[in-house]
Simulated scan of single mutants.
Amino acid sequence: MTDDLTDDLTDEPAGLRVLVADDNPVIRAGLTAVLSAADDLTVVAEAEDGRAAYEAALHHCPDVILLDVRMPGVDGMAALPHLVRVAPVMMLTYSDETDLVQEAVRLGAGGYLVHGEFTTQQLTQAVRDVGRGRPHFTPTATNALLAHVRGNATAHARPELRALPKESSLKGLSQLQSTMGQSSQSRFQLSGREAEIMDLIASGMNNQQIAAVCFISEKTVKNHINRIFAKLHTTTRAQATAKWLGVA
């Protein structure tokens, strides 16, 4: 009986081991202190640049890597494609440029937190989420991803609505705007939150991912999606996406 009990305890999930990479020693110390205060998180190593982060990752095999974008020597963006092969990576930085956020996600980042947009509790929860494969983004990063999604939606719109001929006059522009009518959001009478969620659906995100990006529960996401489907008169994500992008 004792052996069985021991085996059961051994099978319990262990805490997450974290690597913190930032060139500012004060920030590294602060992050380490915050994360170490959580019972289920342990900082196993710190690094001052991308190269040191990669070497530490290979040595310590962390469960999650917190990575700054701009560091001397090998910066975070250069190290990111190599680090994601070792463990899930969450960018934790002051750099909130839209292009950087989109590039980080393209290179495999599982989350993007901008300093000043999260509490200590949100930070520890974000580490847990990314360690479990759930994306986590602060508002600025979320807006950057939405801008990318909306840009793709425009690129896939009907050809006659994508661009004006070079010789188009102001009158032609007015006619084009009339042809396009109201935006998808107003056309389908979606709220701001519903439009945001519909953009994320169109990008291919599942309910769990949408919940993480929007900082809401999966149940709330489902409720929003039910209302969206009702307003778009659709029953599937594919149908809703086609209507939303104007290709139905």
Rank of each mutant, 00 (worst) to 15 (best):
Ala38Trp: 00
Thr42Arg: 04
Thr42Ala: 12
Thr42Val: 08
Thr42Asp: 15
Val43Cys: 00
Ala45Asn: 06
Glu46Tyr: 10
Glu46Pro: 08
Ala47Val: 15
Arg51Lys: 15
Ala53Lys: 03
Ala53Gln: 07
Ala53Met: 06
Ala53Tyr: 11
Ala53Cys: 01
Tyr54Asp: 09
Glu55Met: 12
Glu55Val: 13
Ala56Pro: 08
Ala57Gly: 10
Ala57Phe: 01
His59Ile: 00
His59Ala: 01
His60Arg: 11
Cys61Val: 14
Pro62Lys: 08
Asp63Ser: 07
Asp63Gln: 07
Val64Phe: 01
Val64Trp: 03
Ile65Pro: 08
Ile65Asp: 08
Leu66Asp: 03
Leu67Ser: 08
Leu67Ala: 10
Val69Ala: 02
Val69Gly: 01
Arg70Gly: 06
Met71Cys: 10
Gly73Asn: 07
Gly73Cys: 03
Gly73Ser: 08
Asp75His: 09
Asp75Pro: 04
Gly76His: 05
Met77Asp: 03
Met77Ala: 08
Met77Gly: 07
Met77Arg: 07
Met77Lys: 08
Ala78Met: 10
Ala78Val: 08
Ala78Thr: 14
Ala79Tyr: 10
His82Tyr: 15
His82Trp: 14
Val84Tyr: 03
Arg85Trp: 05
Pro88Val: 02
Pro88Arg: 09
Val89Ser: 06
Val89Thr: 14
Met90Cys: 03
Met91Thr: 01
Leu92Val: 10
Asp96Ile: 06
Glu97Ser: 08
Glu97Asn: 12
Thr98Leu: 11
Leu100Met: 12
Val101Tyr: 02
Val101Gln: 00
Gln102Phe: 12
Glu103His: 00
Val105Asp: 00
Val105Leu: 05
Val105Cys: 04
Ala109Ser: 11
Gly110Met: 15
Tyr112Arg: 09
Leu113His: 09
Val114Trp: 05
Gly116Leu: 07
Glu117Val: 14
Glu117Trp: 13
Thr119Arg: 12
Thr119Ile: 06
Thr119Gln: 09
Thr120Gln: 15
Gln122Phe: 11
Leu123Glu: 05
Ala126Phe: 01
Ala126His: 05
Arg128Asn: 03
Val130Leu: 11
Val130Met: 02
Gly131Asp: 11
Gly131Phe: 06
Gly131Gln: 06
Arg132Val: 00
Arg132Ser: 15
Gly133Arg: 03
His136Arg: 05
